[in-house]
Design a protein around this nucleic acid. Structure first.
Lengths: 146, 146
DNA sequence: AGCAAATCGATTGTTCACAATATGACGGAG
DNA sequence: CTCCGTCATATTGTGAACAATCGATTTGCT
């Protein structure tokens, strides 16, 4: 593989990741739309379904999104009554995010979505597991070097 | 692997793709910033560096972006003198996109970017090639089913 | 020729994504 | 106790993404 071919390959890989990420949110969109949420909002809910309460900082770290993205998004979700935002009593810098009953109620409705998409994808569980492991290695390697 | 574990895995995989896509644009950003362009604009230039002239429709197909994304982006790039937009004479519905000298001039400056990022990534050429092949299989499989 | 359907791109409106900056709150050094 | 640096979040501004819709053109069918 010469240098020029390799550059093309790397560009292709980066493009593939970019394109596949958008393809996934497109796959989720019609299903999430029925719940009135978007894919990034679904990611927030995935966290809150597990631990019910979090902070902007914690969500920022887990989802790798900054406050400029999260603050307006969490406000929209609060307007939809999916969660509540409150300043912490102990440390007024911290904003606590707590899921509501309405937010919890979406969990049951959302459960079938990954199953449906998995079935539609035509991939095997093994392929997904292997690919996930490999992607994690790549991400770790890239992050470690920066 | 039980059902619940599997759902978590699929959610993880989708999130990993989403996060890695953003990580890549962040890696490119400081380098592309020196050229005054963004990652999606770089993708447009990758096409135009190869064929010099294209159309909105062709770019839309190659990059998997719709006119609502491309039209304003191409206008910004035209404002930067990187390309020109003109209605086709033969078919007035078609807008021809042609790269300018200034746009071509960025090619040389951009050449070193993938090399630099590759070196920084700590990955081997083989890992990248294998991963690229696997990602393409996944995308093909997912797209075929929709 | 004449009209319906398809094509191409632009527009509008909403939601991310993120850099840069601002604001207020905490916490430690002196 | 006070100043000062750090921390957590909010705000502003720019640039994607994309659904929905529109306007103009072309093509196909009768």
């Amino acid at each position: 593989m010469n240098s020029s071919e390799f550059l093309k390959l790397e560009n292709q890989l980066c493009f593939s990741l970019y394109a596949s990420s958008r393809a996934i949110t497109r796959m989720y969109r019609p299903f999430l739309e029925e719940l009135g949420i978007t894919y990034p909002q679904y990611l927030v809910l995935l966290v809150l379904w597990e631990q019910k309460e979090s902070t902007v900082k914690e969500l920022s770290e887990k989802l790798d999104l900054d406050s400029g993205t999260l603050t307006p998004m969490l406000k929209r979700m609060e307007a939809q009554k999916l969660l509540v935002r409150n300043r912490s009593q102990e440390d007024e810098r911290v904003v606590l995010i707590r899921i509501t009953e309405a937010g919890l109620a979406l969990h049951d409705q959302a459960l079938c979505i990954p199953q449906t998409l998995f079935a539609a994808s035509g991939l095997s569980a093994e392929e997904i597991a292997n690919f996930n492991a490999q992607l994690k290695r790549i991400i770790t390697s890239v992050n470690a070097s920066m």
